[in-house]
Design a binder for these strands. Structure first.
Lengths: 210, 210
DNA sequence: GCTCAATTTGAGCGCTTGCTCAAAAATGGA
DNA sequence: TCCATTTTTGAGCAAGCGCTCAAATTGAGC
């Protein structure tokens, strides 16, 4: 059983021109940058270098591409958080390191300074409830990862007994959302690092201020 | 000189069918709810009860309607902040009262739980730079109001000398953005009030923690 | 080299988009 | 009453939308 075989394919008649991971990543970056409504199928065709037929064969609809892209995005974000946790000696230090990583938000050349899940949950609230729900669930999964870390911190004695991991998870997610939205304004390169540092400091100070 | 006369009109030949303040408010609510790209001119025609010709005579373009709506929205938000400041005995208490007002974010039946300026600055970043810039400037004006209040608080001795009003203004705006974005997720009615309370507490604690 | 299923292609469908403009309707002032 | 002026109307344009599907293209297995 190969890691990357397409198990349903019995006779490989023609291998896909485009690696499908690469296609999904391109779609993710485009939707992340432009949002759902501002991205047309023509945009997708050009970016993915694929005809409309191929796109519909793979994803079924524009909404289908978007949903796959959202999940792909959420996966990489969760992997990123795990990296910060793993390389840190204590739980709170891992979370603080993650918070501090938003110092560089304005310098990165990512498709958007904001988070794709955040953007989607806001953009699609009134017009695309099904997709909005997917984005909301993925954000909840991310919040659950924060919460799980605060539970670990409590068990490790890094936080007092009365600390509420669920509240802290929600709080941390809200703080990060705030910084990322603030960073969408013009000329925030000098302020955003200060906000990220302040957040990292507050995470480290939780043992005495929670 | 009447407060509400249209000074350029010499001979009033036919009075506008629709009060133009009401029209603008309807447009604001629609764009606030749905965003720029998801709102079509047909939507506007139906909501404003106006033909396309009337809309173009008043606003020039869809972008023109949106810009007017944004400015109208920013005006009411700033008036709201001023109300909280005026009715409070101290500056920090006014800001804390404003922060605490987001407790009820999920209960209100506003067009969106999020802020129209925030939504716009995020949605339009890649696709409509001119409108994004307008939204960014309006957010900066709001931040400047926060900063001005922190300056007042310093002068009134509510904050220590080393407090940085510019940072605090940015920080408060970022905090509010975080709560409002978090509130866009499903089922956050129980958490949002806690986040708003915690923010209000932190504002009141600034004298000793800044 | 042929077979044949998987994949790609792209013309084009019905519909919607943002927008225009000439004609109609409305009303204060003469 | 009728003029002058403004506002409303709405048919309709060119372009773009999401999407379909029959035909062409590809390449691994025989």
């Amino acid at each position: 059983m190969n890691l990357s075989d397409h198990s349903k394919v019995r006779d490989m008649a023609r291998k896909a021109k485009h690696d499908s991971d690469d296609t999904l990543q391109k779609a993710t970056n485009l939707f992340w940058k432009q949002g759902y409504h501002a991205t047309s199928l023509k945009d997708l065709e050009q970016t993915l270098d694929l005809g409309p037929g191929s796109i519909y064969a793979q994803f079924g609809s524009k909404a289908g591409v978007f949903e796959a892209a959202l999940k792909n995005y959420a996966d990489s974000r969760q992997a990123e958080l795990e990296r910060h946790i793993e390389k840190s000696s204590s739980v709170l230090q891992g979370l603080a390191s993650y918070a501090a990583s938003f110092r560089t938000l304005c310098d990165r050349d990512a498709p958007s300074v904001s988070c794709m899940m955040m953007k989607s949950v806001t953009e699609l609230h009134a017009t695309e409830p099904a997709l909005q729900s997917v984005a909301s669930d993925l954000l909840d999964a991310t919040e659950a990862m924060f919460t799980a870390q605060f539970v670990r911190a409590k068990k490790a004695g890094e936080l007092p007994n009365y600390a509420d991991p669920h509240f802290l998870g929600a709080w941390l997610q809200s703080e990060i959302m705030g910084i990322r939205t603030y960073a969408q304004k013009k000329d925030t390169q000098s302020t955003v690092p200060k906000l990220a540092d302040a957040l990292a400091q507050r995470v480290l100070a939780l043992p005495t201020t929670v």
